[in-house]
Design a protein around this nucleic acid. Structure first.
Lengths: 128, 128
DNA sequence: TGACCAGATCGACAACTTTCGATATATTTA
DNA sequence: TAAATATATCGAAAGTTGTCGATCTGGTCA
């Protein structure tokens, strides 16, 4: 999936992709969204379009710090592979950061992604 | 799909559903999202998790007023039934209002839905 | 090294989505 | 009433997604 953006970003793409995961998507209220921007913006919303992932983000937001993957299986009522799948989707979308601590994996919300999300979803001032 | 909320809202459910379409979903940063709230919030994001629907919302936001369905087919490059399908999804999610003008259907962003979306997606101040 | 454990990946299945052509519905106009 | 037209609905095909059991990978500790 990153290969699309890699091409688009040209030579120094790798660093850009790794460091600015959500830099892609344009706000819903941007002047004139083209197909590619719309696709990137939709990807961000799609990442949050599942109740399990909404709950993961909610837990991470209220926890106020990194949370071990192992502490998510039981509250979510989902199997380990399924939770891992959702964590990957959120991480790929640039919303979560992953940190290895011994044999445990800790996940946390990424500051810049949170800010980006708020901007992208904010239509006040553009419409109505 | 509305039947779920109808039950939940009891006797006077119909009016409540019709008048407060997005009253359902809780913010991503709410204290402790339960399964049902997470599902409602995910539904809202899912409505925006498709590039065609992102573009529709974008057109409506920048148009600054109701837009005829017939003016969307060509810019989106999609068939009439497909656009109708997406408009229905957005309307069902409570994001769009529909208005019949003669034989044309005009769609516009719903003020309260736009505000709700901004609140639901805003995690600043809760996390990080 | 070897046993153990957390998490990621694989493979498969069921459910849901997107899309369009064909058709139905509803509104205007002759 | 009949013709024309805009939108919604139907039915089907192709693709995507969520889920889990089984397995692989990588780190820890004896």
């Amino acid at each position: 999936m990153p290969s699309e953006r890699m091409k688009e970003l040209g030579g120094a793409g790798l660093m850009a992709v790794l460091e600015t995961p959500v830099a892609c998507c344009a706000p819903l209220g941007a002047p004139a969204l083209d197909q590619e921007e719309a696709l990137a913006t939709a990807e961000l919303f799609k990442a949050l379009g599942d109740p399990a992932r909404v709950r993961i983000v909610n837990v991470l937001a209220t926890a106020g710090g990194p949370v071990c993957a192992c502490d998510l299986y039981e509250p979510l009522g989902l199997s380990q592979p399924t939770v891992s799948h959702h964590l990957k989707k959120l991480t790929d979308a640039g919303l979560l950061g992953r940190e290895q601590r011994g044999k445990w994996a800790y996940f946390s919300l990424k500051r810049d992604a949170v800010e980006k999300l708020a901007v992208v979803a904010d239509l006040k001032g553009v419409c109505c």
